[in-house]
């Protein structure tokens, strides 16, 4: 069943429209009982952050996200899956990433969206650099060990 579904993967500097992305997966269909969306936004770190600059490895980013999305489609009975990741200069309050997972039932949609985000954080070639309001030297965001630990959970759960 999942073999026929192709994920929609987009890597873009432009913003995305979450409602439009949901509609893209659901319009004209009557077999979908659950749509889970995850949106990742840029926060201002208590007013200290002016912008996040997101660098990426274009060819590999598309390939890696498509491969992770394919894994999710193989693991859960989804009717549709969308992943959008932005790059470039992103201001507090703006969108960074979107995952939309649609399925007949909620459990598959929730789990697939969470799985996608955990894998994206660890394996998709994007790097965030912080630009501060104070004008102090900007620095690269460090990877969190809790993000790596989140992956182990999926490897332990029975498929």
């Amino acid at each position: 069943m999942s073999g026929a579904i192709k994920p929609r993967v987009a890597i873009q500097s432009d913003d995305f429209d979450t409602a439009a992305e949901i509609a893209r997966l659901t319009s004209g269909r009557h077999d979908i009982g659950a749509v889970v969306t995850f949106s990742g936004l840029c926060r201002d770190e208590a007013g200290t952050l002016q912008a996040l600059e997101i660098e990426h490895y274009p060819e590999m980013a598309a390939r890696e996200i498509t491969s992770i999305a394919g894994e999710a489609l193989g693991r859960w009975p989804l009717t549709g899956l969308t992943v959008i990741h932005r790059y470039g200069m992103i201001r507090p309050g703006e969108n960074i990433v979107l995952v939309v997972a649609a399925s007949a039932h909620r459990r598959a949609a929730f789990d697939a969206a969470a799985f996608l985000m955990d894998y994206l954080k660890n394996a998709a070639p994007f790097w965030k650099k912080e630009h501060l309001v104070s004008g102090a030297a900007s620095g690269w965001v460090e990877a969190k060990s809790t993000d790596a630990a989140a992956l182990t959970r999926w490897q332990e759960i029975e498929k």
Binding site: L120, N122, A124, P125, K128, E142
Partner: peptide, 28 residues
């Protein structure tokens, strides 16, 4: 990454046409 796929440090590089070096990723 060799030819845009993650590899570990023990991987042979024969056949590579593009090798990328980067810090741990911080996307999402």
């Amino acid at each position: 990454a060799i030819n845009q796929e993650h590899v570990d440090h023990k991987t042979p590089i024969g056949g590579a046409h593009e090798i990328a070096l980067f810090p741990p990723m911080t996307g999402g």
